[in-house]
């Protein structure tokens, strides 16, 4: 009975409060935006080239893949899960897509369409397995996706025999560095994905239930919703996004290698956490993730322009991740969100 009351609560006030429209949530994102702004101001003042159109489009290109992966990761973390397999899956999706892309006798359009289908399909299958296995057997997604990390990497190496795939259609290669008004097209694709994710998470019942699962799984179950469906869906969405990221990777760098993406999952998790999403689930927004990805990208770029050594750069990135979590702790205490 108590649980049922809690269910109703989480279906109404709680969920709405947490999904992106309450003033407090806006305030959270604004706080992260402010941190990003401060960084931008700092680097603009301290380095000569930071605030130039070329450098801005560089940063946008550089964060694109991490942003796409992080959007998927946001879905998974919101339900209280984690996906450690995205880096390996990126390699697997890329080599499958890359193999299709280099099939002779296809028109560029056919090749790209089929390759996208193959890459996203591969991601969807891997993501589905991640979600289904953890939900069906009630296993921690940490362990299941750790398994997938090895499976997908092994599969990528197996299908390519550890060789790099190259020689993609020239127009596909050119697409990867296309700009519209100085903004990289690949980044615009990522932005569209952010917008769709934002809509799904904050405007649909489906999205609200994902928050609900992260907050109180039992309550969502008692309210008669299939936990299995939502969990599988979150991981599958993450997988599909990995497939898209793989296409972007190939367009940008014109190769598909089975050893790409090592450690990318950690960068994606970092962007999500810096963006204010709670690792416990149920709390956070995809706008926060966008800002988090921007913060890591601005740091990586700005610290090089600032002339800091590679090792110092790595240390500072680590400090920022920990700072973000500490700030989040205080924010939770102060605002109750």
């Amino acid at each position: 009975m108590q649980a049922l009351e809690k269910t109703q609560a989480s279906d109404t006030a709680d969920t709405r409060r947490l999904t992106g429209w309450s003033p407090k949530v806006l305030l959270r994102d604004a706080g992260i935006g402010l941190a990003l702004l401060l960084l931008i101001v700092f680097f603009s003042v301290s380095t000569e080239h930071f605030l130039t159109p070329n450098n801005i489009s560089n940063i946008l290109t550089q964060i694109t893949i991490n942003l796409i992966l992080a959007v998927g990761m946001t879905f998974v973390i919101l339900i209280g899960g984690i996906d450690l397999s995205v880096g390996s899956m990126l390699a697997f999706c890329a080599v499958v897509g890359g193999t299709v892309l280099t099939i002779p006798d296809l028109s560029v359009f056919q090749a790209v369409a089929l390759a996208t289908l193959a890459a996203v399909g591969t991601g969807v299958v891997c993501g589905f397995l991640n979600g289904w296995i953890s939900a069906f057997w009630g296993l921690p997604s940490f362990i299941v996706t750790l398994g997938m990390l090895n499976i997908a990497r092994g599969a990528a190496l197996q299908v390519t025999d550890a060789r790099t795939i190259y020689s993609f259609p020239p127009s596909f290669n050119a697409f990867g560095s296309q700009m519209i008004l100085g903004i990289p097209v690949v980044f615009l694709i990522a932005l569209v994905l952010v917008a769709i994710a934002w809509f799904v998470l904050s405007k649909t019942v489906f999205g609200r239930l994902l928050y609900g699962i992260g907050n109180n799984e039992e309550a969502v179950r008692l309210a008669g919703h299939s936990l299995m469906f939502y969990k599988v869906a979150a991981f599958t969405i993450a997988g599909a996004l990995v497939g898209i990221a793989a296409m972007v990777y190939m367009a940008r760098l014109n190769i598909a290698s089975p050893i790409i993406g090592i450690g990318f999952e950690l960068n994606a998790i970092a962007a999500v956490i810096i963006g204010g999403t709670s690792l416990n689930g149920g709390r956070g927004t995809v706008i926060g993730t966008l800002l988090g990805a921007c913060i890591t990208g601005v740091l990586a770029n700005g610290l090089i322009l600032f002339g800091l050594s590679d090792f110092m750069r790595q240390m500072i990135t680590g400090v920022v991740i920990i700072l973000a979590v500490i700030i989040d702790k205080y924010r939770e205490r102060l605002t109750g969100i």
Partner: peptide, 17 residues
């Protein structure tokens, strides 16, 4: 790594056109 080299070099090129 290819991807990291791409990002790091782009930034170096900004600093030293």
């Amino acid at each position: 790594e290819t991807e990291e080299a791409n990002a790091v070099f782009s930034t170096m090129l900004t600093a030293h056109p």
